[in-house]
């Protein structure tokens, strides 16, 4: 089994994007993704794409690495494009491929969807590539904090995310070990129909769940031993700081977004 989860993994280096306040980055990526989903105009997409390209350049993350991480999603983009182009009916037939007719509407929608998806993926991976998981959870905790009053456990959500991120490599490692151990006992994981394959997962999943529960239990004890009691009077070593560069970045971002939206209305 091969586990490839390089997509969106934090790439530690120094760049303007890395230094920005994660709260700014999180808000910007989210609003950017929403805007890209709402517009349907070629100029708007051109500006968005140019902006993303500039951001990639500014992030100091090697483009090759970014693209490699997206390999698995590339299939999804191609799939979306194909489905759209073949399945959307339309009157204005551009050309025929045997029995399949491709209309101008279909091509238009397919291109639009592909552009949206690609820009969304680039925007979100830029966020995760330039902000450490801890920074991201801190940002999420910050934005959820106002909802604490209505019962949203913002601190608990952030803590859960941190612990999940912490244990992903450990559990992948563990999964790999269990697979090997069961293979050594003659488990056949590769052949047979869907039912047989699903059944073959039991000897893998049961031990994995059991060990996760045990880990969770031990971790809870360890956290208690280190005086954890939720977010009661909890402080943070690393404070998020909103500085001048964050202000400039925010202003530039708002300007660009305004251009994109205006392009949508004008053209």
């Amino acid at each position: 089994m091969n586990f490839n989860i390089t997509i969106g993994q934090y790439y530690p280096t120094d760049s303007i994007l890395h230094r920005l306040d994660p709260r700014v980055k999180l808000a910007a990526s989210l609003s950017f993704i929403i805007i890209v989903c709402l517009i349907d105009n070629g100029f708007g997409y051109a500006i968005s794409a140019a902006f993303i390209a500039a951001a990639v350049w500014a992030s100091n993350v090697p483009v090759k690495l970014m693209l490699r991480g997206m390999k698995s999603i590339f299939f999804f983009i191609v799939f979306t494009f194909t489905v759209n182009i073949f399945l959307i009916p339309g009157g204005n037939i551009l050309f025929n491929l045997g029995p399949v007719k491709i209309s101008a509407e279909a091509l238009n929608t397919a291109l639009l969807m592909t552009a949206r998806l690609s820009i969304m993926i680039f925007a979100s991976s830029l966020l995760t590539l330039t902000s450490s998981p801890i920074q991201l959870t801190d940002a999420i905790e910050y934005y959820l904090a106002p909802f604490k009053k209505i019962g949203v456990p913002s601190h608990q959500i952030a803590m859960m995310m941190t612990i999940t991120l912490r244990f992903i490599p450990t559990l992948i490692d563990e999964l790999d070990k269990i697979v090997r151990a069961q293979k050594a006992r003659g488990a056949d994981l590769d052949t047979g129909g869907a039912f047989k394959k699903a059944k073959a997962l039991i000897p893998i999943l049961v031990p994995l769940f059991l060990s996760s529960f045990r880990r969770a239990d031990e971790l809870a004890t360890a956290m208690e031993a280190r005086c954890y009691r939720g977010d009661i009077e909890r402080t943070k070593m690393k404070q998020m700081k909103f500085g001048m560069q964050d202000l400039y970045a925010g202003i530039i971002f708002i300007c660009i977004c305004s251009c994109i939206i205006m392009a949508n209305f004008i053209f």
Binding site: T162, T221, A222, A225
Partner: peptide, 11 residues
Amino acid sequence: FQNPDNQIIAT
């Protein structure tokens, strides 16, 4: 504790 993996919380 005993298990080094089950007492580290942060990444």
